[in-house]
């Protein structure tokens, strides 16, 4: 029983990370048709900057963690918005080339991080409580899982509120459904592009700082390794669907944990298998609309 609880909550924590990456990917894809390979780099950069911030402020205080999260979110948002404005926008409506540009950016930025911070993982510290465990139903759960889950839920809530109650949110929801009709109502939908990139970048940035606590280190490969699973989550959930991304994040991560424990470390393979099955049975994903 305690193992099940531990796997479940750890899975939820990992799912929270997947969601922080996948939510942005899914929104960006839904609105713009762009698959953003540079998303992992936004995450990695935020993780490094968050780590530097926390280090400068004394890593074991809660204030430093909060500052790291803020810096991570801001860095993610700024870099993402800059990417959209400087690179993606020039290739308006050319989806393949937009994907290629993000591929180039991903390769170049990871190499740059290698150059700046080195290829070895940097082990990090946080508030002492995060490294401790809490006992639930006999399972000793690392506390950072709770932080991850709480923040991911908060981010989900904020994005939902933003989408529901702001004009940009309205434009984004409409644009995901039918972008050309949004322009035919006299709205410059490109501004919404920058906004979704910034939101996605901020979520990934927060994810980066949290990921460094979940794994206990920062490395230039951090974003790339999460990105592949976030892609899988996005496809399983249905490209462009925020609820789909949320549900699929949890399903994929929990499944991965259980398979790793009970099926001899086959978590990654089981996830790929799940992807294959979902695509065979329901090619548009769990929550995807009919094409």
């Amino acid at each position: 029983m305690s193992t099940v609880v531990l796997l479940l909550i750890t899975g939820l924590g990992l799912g929270a990370l997947y969601f922080l990456v996948a939510s942005g990917l899914s929104l960006i894809y839904g609105l713009m048709g762009v698959l953003n390979f540079a998303h992992g780099s936004f995450l990695t950069l935020a993780a490094f900057l968050g780590w530097e911030t926390a280090r400068a402020l004394g890593a074991d205080s809660w204030g430093a963690l909060a500052a790291a999260l803020l810096v991570g979110a801001a860095a993610g948002a700024l870099v993402a918005a800059g990417t959209e404005l400087l690179l993606i926008r020039r290739l308006y409506e050319r989806h393949i080339e937009q994907v290629l540009v993000t591929v180039g950016l991903a390769l170049a930025s990871v190499a740059l991080f290698d150059g700046i911070w080195g290829t070895d993982p940097q082990f990090i510290r946080g508030p002492a409580w995060l490294a401790e465990t809490t006992e639930i139903l006999g399972a000793r759960i690392p506390n950072n899982r709770f932080l991850l889950i709480a923040i991911a839920i908060l981010v989900l809530l904020l994005i939902v509120l933003f989408l529901r109650f702001t004009r940009y949110g309205l434009i984004i929801r409409a644009g995901v459904e039918n972008r050309s009709m949004v322009t035919a109502l006299g709205i410059d939908v490109r501004r919404a592009f920058t906004v979704v990139f910034a939101i996605g970048g901020a979520a990934a940035g927060i994810g980066g700082v949290l990921a460094s606590h979940y794994f206990g280190y920062v490395s230039p490969q951090l974003g790339g390794s999460l990105l592949i699973f976030a892609f899988i989550v996005t496809v399983i959930g249905g490209l462009g669907s925020l609820p789909g991304a949320a549900v699929a994040s949890v399903v994929v991560a929990v499944l991965q944990q259980f398979a790793n424990f009970y099926l001899g470390g086959t978590g990654d393979l089981v996830v790929v298998l799940l992807l294959a099955v979902v695509l065979l049975v329901r090619p548009r994903g769990l929550f995807g609309r009919a094409a």
Binding site: T183, A184, L185, G186, I187, D188, V189
Partner: peptide, 8 residues
């Protein structure tokens, strides 16, 4: 003109 400008 872009579509949204025409509409505007």
């Amino acid at each position: 003109f872009a579509t949204h400008r025409i509409v505007q």
